[in-house]
Design a protein around this nucleic acid. Sequence first.
DNA 1: AATTTTTCCAACCGCGCGCTT
DNA 2: CAAGCGCGCGGTTGGAAAAAT
Length: 254
Amino acid sequence: MMRSPYYDKNGLKRGAWSKEEDEMLRAYVERYGHSNWRQLPKHAGLSRCGKSCRLRWLNYLRPGVKRGNYTQEEDQLIINLHQQLGNKWSSIAKRLPGRSDNEIKNHWHSHLKKLLERNHAEKSELKTKASDNCEGEATKYLEPENTLLGFAAASSSNIISSENSPHIYNSSSNFSFGGESVANASACEIFEEFGDFWTKPFLPENIYDQNNYKSLNYAVNEADVREYSSYIFDNADFLCHVMQEFPEDPKMDI
DNA sequence: AATTTTTCCAACCGCGCGCTT
DNA sequence: CAAGCGCGCGGTTGGAAAAAT
């Protein structure tokens, strides 16, 4: 899946790199560094332009460079950072060791963008369904101590506190929803937005298996999750990821 | 099985920034 | 201050491989 090699009018080689070229570039950079990309190909014996050498080194030959096989964690980080930074691929790449800006950009356009578009479509569908029976359903799902969503909403609006409700660890008031704090969103709006995942009963014997339940509670109360506070309401997949991240720490005592 | 279409990644291209002269 | 140069960034393309027809 790459361009066939050819020579341009200046006699410089373009297109796919051969193994021999890779080895020549690698050997040269490892020995002499790359203080001047423009001069480098001449000294390394390569018929390439400096730019091409630089790109090949950064994206392919550089030690520790990762190729493909993105983890769920990496995908999530890219999505979060893209929300914050936009198409600042080099800035995003700095937060993902071993990944180049070019590779992240490709991954975004070929996978993540489509994934997000699908999620949005599904969310709109949920919203439509939920709005049909919102009036009757929303309130009962939002008992603070009974649902994950209720817990989050309560944390945000200080309905409960860790002092008077020690069984619920009130760790954050920073949850957000569509850019606004949950405290400012009506129950009905929240219900429409999140669908039934967030409004399932909070108790383990009802819905979740024991391991997931414990992890879920732990995750909800950790600073790491707060960092993702705006995202946590937008994507249930992310929460599942956090559950996997902290499987050994069932700190909650409900 | 043959052909067409889509996917996706390596590589190219042009622009802008910062440094040097 | 202006011009020249090199580098890095982000958008775009080429084309092989995979999937669909």
